[in-house]
Design a protein around this nucleic acid. Structure first.
Length: 467
RNA sequence: GUCCCCUUCGUCUAUCGGUUAGGACGCCAGAUUUUCAUUCUGGAAAGAGGAGUUCGAUUCUCCUAGGGGAUACCA
């Protein structure tokens, strides 16, 4: 039987990092087993569901490269089918009408809690005769769940988890207004869509028991369950916005590469021996549910950043240039010309070596397209002493005489100048860097000269020397 | 309160009864170097606590503690 997994977010916000990992695991599991990965939008909460959120989720998945099979299913559109299943349950006596008011319910919970009993619905309408129904009250439909025995969820990560059936009350299937609840909808949809493996956050573990009872009552096949631990913030508490519970778009905006984030998320709670940097192909090849850990993991930006650096260094120059361009355009307030793009791509090899995010890559590319005369930052300014200016002028003279403008000849010329001046290379390279880039940090200085070209280089050097 | 789950360096993790408890991030020191970064070398750093089972427990069982999750006419 081919594996069918699904990712089922509710469109009430962006695709947060925990959801992204759940989607990733589902995707990986499906791809590994050559099965299907489906997407279902759980939009039954009409109040909180928005189109913007749907777009954000789809965008997030696309950005991460998690492609789904078939058209996404919108749960709300299936409400008639859900209601139909509830009616069948009613007809066969596996569900019943409950007329308890919300106040009544709240009171019931309160007393139960006070007496140390589980705060659950007591089943007061479970066996009542329909004639007892109060007039003018729209009832909800409740599932007649087993009162005795236990329900065991055979979870691939959590193992066999046993729940006493008395602990689980008669959940609501249909609200008073006739709309289906989540508990009913997931069960019906997962069945109808043919989901074989449900992989989701372990905050759903208790739900699994209740859903399983429902499935068994209907007589459908119970899917395999896998409840993966949640991601926590650096302090061990539930992930909040101040931690990393941001939308994946926020990670993109921070300059993380999708492949880096994916790799990071994969290793958060899953491992394959000592492997850390794992390509998508390897991930698909290696992924399994057995190696998913059982404990919650804390989100660690430092490690993500390290991974990001690794992926940036290994990335294609043209690809990175394409990512950097729009950021640069925004920073400078103008479009980046094809010539400038060529310049950036040429310098990319040296640039990416020292970047840890796409944003810092853009930042360090800025000097390439800066207009003369450059504004030097304070550190750079302090390097252009009177003495340095004189040296730079003589260096410019020497460079001007160069026949070929390439890194090799440039290095020879700079070294020769240093020797002639009786200076260490660093003494001349730093002021030169300041003049060329306006900062004290850049790729190798000979590469900078080479990439910038004769005119810009000499111009910038003379600008600085004269200032 | 009730139910469920979790617990190895600061963090992510390996280990599936016998290891000097391994790797990675971060941190510290050093090497390389024109800056920064990269790279390389070395270092500090862990089995929550307590009982058992066993010749032997990080590994199996139980208890305690701590953390997390669930307890909606939300999903």
């Amino acid at each position: 039987m081919t594996v069918v997994t699904r990712f089922a977010p509710s469109p009430t916000g962006f695709l947060h990092i925990g959801g992204a990992r759940t989607a990733l695991f589902n995707w990986l599991y499906a791809r590994h087993n050559k099965g299907k990965f489906l997407l279902r939008i759980e939009d039954t909460d009409r109040e909180r569901s928005t189109d913007a959120a749907i777009d954000a989720i789809l965008d997030g998945l696309n950005w991460l490269g998690l492609d789904w099979d078939e058209e996404p299913v919108f749960q709300f559109s299936r409400r008639e089918r859900h209601a139909e299943v509830a009616r069948d349950l009613l007809a066969t006596g596996k569900a019943y009408y409950c007329y308890a008011s919300r106040e009544e319910l709240a009171e019931m919970r309160e007393t139960a809690r006070a007496e140390g009993r589980p705060p659950i619905y007591d089943g007061r309408w479970r066996d009542k005769d329909p004639s007892a129904a109060p007039a003018g009250v729209d009832p909800v439909v409740r599932f007649k769940s087993p009162n005795h025995g236990e329900t065991v969820v055979r979870d691939l990560v959590q193992g066999d988890v046993i729940f006493a059936n008395q602990q689980l009350d008669d959940m609501i299937l249909l609200r008073a207004d006739g709309t289906p609840t989540y508990m009913l909808s997931v069960v019906v949809d997962d069945h109808d869509i043919g989901v074989t493996d449900i992989i989701r956050g372990d905050d759903h573990l208790t739900n699994a028991a209740r859903q399983q009872q429902l499935i068994e009552a209907i007589g459908w096949m119970v899917p395999r369950y896998t409840h993966i631990p949640l991601i926590h913030g650096p302090d061990g508490a539930k992930l909040s916005k101040r931690h990393g519970a941001l939308g994946v778009d926020a990670y993109r905006d921070m300059g993380y590469l999708p492949e880096a984030l994916r790799n990071y998320l994969l290793r958060l709670g899953w491992s394959h021996g000592d492997d850390e940097v794992i390509s998508t192909e390897q991930a698909i090849d290696w992924f399994n549910l057995e190696n998913v850990g059982k404990s919650a993991a804390r989100f660690d930006f430092a490690k993500l950043e390290n991974l990001n650096g690794i992926y940036i260094r290994g990335a294609d120059d043209a690809y990175l240039t394409g990512l950097v361009a729009p950021i640069l355009a925004e920073k400078t307030g103008q479009d980046i010309s094809p010539n400038q793009l060529k310049l950036i791509e040429k310098a990319m090899n040296g640039l990416k070596e020292r970047a840890k995010s796409v944003n810092s890559l853009a930042e360090s590319s800025l000097f390439l397209i800066a207009e003369r005369p450059l504004t030097l930052d304070d550190k750079a300014k302090s390097l252009i002493t009177e003495e340095a200016s004189a040296v730079l002028t003589r260096l410019a003279d020497r460079l001007e005489a160069l026949e070929d403008w390439n890194a090799e000849d440039l290095e020879a010329a700079v070294r020769a100048t240093a020797e002639a001046e009786g200076l260490k290379l660093g003494k001349i390279a730093q002021p030169l860097r300041a003049a060329l880039t306006g900062t004290t940090v850049s790729p190798g200085i000979f590469d900078v000269l080479d990439v910038l070209g004769r005119e810009q280089s000499i111009g910038r050097i003379r600008d600085a020397a004269l200032a």
